[in-house]
Design a binder for these strands. Structure first.
Lengths: 339, 339
DNA sequence: AATGATTATGCAAACGTGTGCTGTACATCG
DNA sequence: CGATGTACAGCACACGTTTGCATAATCATT
């Protein structure tokens, strides 16, 4: 059996209420220094650890935040979760992670499971969030922070990468290299990143006074390399000429590289390829992939920081954080092929 | 405010104890079908969800298992955790993950934090586990399963990959290609995988009647690419001849490839390189890395399965699971250079 | 020395469940 | 018809804390 506050009290010769106060930083000033020290010592000797469950029941706070992600096995998500953890744990909070596979039903189930465990807050990095679930969350008045995705309007706090300038810098980079006919292989339009980047691409092209050939714009249904391969092949088969592909993320870009290789098309000599996210090891690909560095770890820490603010109900603070990204030029982009 | 069992009871016109029994599958048979159905209906209408915290306090079980990992951001660990989650969640359990960075102190802190939250079990994939902590765990009589690492003796359940045959198949593969002078660049000897694979290498070499040149055996302090680079450079600088490097994992192997490239040594033409784990995307490296596929996802599911057994205290079952690995031959290994 | 102010501690009621025990109503049996 | 058994529901305590309130102890002030 685990040692309780009463045992500490009896061996220290004080009432258990006093022990509670002595051990709690907020109330420690209410107990005399002498007894506080004695209690502290006895608690250490007995190896007392407060029962978080009992405390949670009483205070209605569990020092736990739920983290809802599409897939913890994905490298970018892993870094995000790591950031959350690192920022949260010094404050005594711990993360409860749940995978959804971007599946609406599973999302709902997982969020319910988290709510049932009385998490103090919810960081949501999963793509969708169905209506009923959102309502439930509102009912429980539980703080919610969106990470790596935009919220519904501005009502929900969110922290994301500032993708638009990133996409612009990609297009700018390609244009400077002489590219004019640029294909776009984007991610799912029902995800926040898929949509944002797609719009940003059109905007950037307009900015450069370049026409967007609709035949050169395709969108994947998932962010998987396999689909990148297929869509890249489809772009090639369409017969429209182009000298560069901007991909919605690195996975899709890797698919492109594979397809180019199987078609014996040289990259970057014939066609340049750009990814997004700058995942680990894309610098080791052949050719090393030009990409846009997205600070997923920092997204995690910022989301956690925002969550801490919300939970402690500090004065209203900036609710929407945009983190800067940076183009990383490598060898998958080069001068446009002369026609 | 959240709806409690008492509200359900009063609107259904029964005692709250009855509601508790009616809603709990194990005790539902104790209440008449008619009232049980009425209670059920009222509970649904009111949107009652049992308070897991209160239940946890009473039953001393939280339907939660702690998962202690070195770094959730690492791709292999991500897959492992994913496996744990997938196997656990259908049973209503949820995973509480904690990173340790393989740091002894942090390990202790995190495990304490998990224990304080009354987890029902602990899956430990972190490298070390210092003495005092182990004792604490034993005191609490909490089920522990080691994943991806061997336990202390056979007293603790564990599930790992069967690395020895994997290493043997690597050496065998190289020998068949004509390699005789083979270097070993292993992981930290104070980690389970580092030690197992190192021993297995010596054993495999002996099996093949090949001498192990101690100047060609080095061990990293961490599993990082940077250290792979440095140690590979050190091997080259040592002046001993060799035609192949067996690395303790893919990260170290990637470091080797980088060093070979900067030294303008061709791989595999001059020196072959083999990794271990078969991480995502090592097939996209240049050259694509020959490696040993370790089923980290399955290690996760198996560890979770074992944990479920232990928690439900089913009859004593196989406590040590070894999962098979498979050599995946790619282009980083080739025929030995003729002298 | 008595009074008031301040500080330190004890007391006990919650928080929302689970569950052993008790009591009641009804059926069954001799 | 009385005794016994069975099925169901109520009662109240316990799980380990926190915390408002009351009380005791200490100290300063007049």
């Amino acid at each position: 059996m685990r040692v309780t506050i009463r045992e500490v009290a009896s061996t220290a010769g004080v009432h258990y209420g006093t022990v509670s106060r002595a051990l709690n930083p907020d109330t420690a000033h209410l107990v005399a220094k002498k007894t506080r020290e004695r209690v502290q010592k006895v608690a250490d000797e007995l190896g007392y650890t407060p029962n978080t469950i009992a405390r949670g029941l009483k205070k209605n706070r569990t020092q736990t935040v739920g983290v809802v992600v599409p897939d913890i096995a994905s490298p970018v998500i892993g870094h995000l979760v790591r950031g959350v953890e690192d920022r949260l744990s010094p404050h005594g909070y711990i993360a409860l992670v749940a995978n959804t596979d971007d599946d609406r039903e599973r999302e709902q189930t997982q969020i319910r499971a988290l709510m049932g465990r009385s998490v103090d807050g919810l960081i949501v990095a999963s793509a969708h969030l169905s209506g009923p679930t959102l309502e439930e969350l509102a009912e429980h008045r539980i703080p919610v922070v969106h990470a790596n995705r935009h919220g519904h309007g501005e009502s929900i706090a969110s922290v994301t990468s500032d993708d638009a300038p990133g996409v612009y810098s990609v297009v700018d980079h390609l244009v400077r290299l002489g590219h004019r006919r640029i294909a776009y292989l984007g991610g799912p339009l029902d995800t926040s990143t898929g949509q944002t980047r797609s719009q940003a691409f059109r905007f950037a092209m307009a900015e450069k006074n370049l026409a967007v050939d609709e035949k050169l714009v395709v969108h994947a249904k998932t962010f998987r390399t396999k689909e990148g391969e297929q869509l890249a092949a489809a772009l090639l088969a369409a017969g429209e000429e182009f000298t560069a592909i901007v991909a919605g993320n690195d996975m899709l870009a890797i698919g492109c590289l594979d397809t180019l290789r199987t078609h014996h098309i040289a990259c970057p000599d014939d066609i340049s390829v750009v990814g997004f996210n700058d995942m680990p090891f894309v610098d080791k690909l052949s050719p090393p992939l030009t990409s846009v560095k997205v600070p997923h770890y920092d997204i995690g820490t910022e989301a956690a920081a925002l969550m801490l603010q919300l939970m402690h109900a500090e004065a209203s603070s900036p609710r929407t954080v945009l983190l800067p990204v940076a183009l990383v030029v490598r060898e998958s982009t080069g001068a446009a092929q002369v026609p």
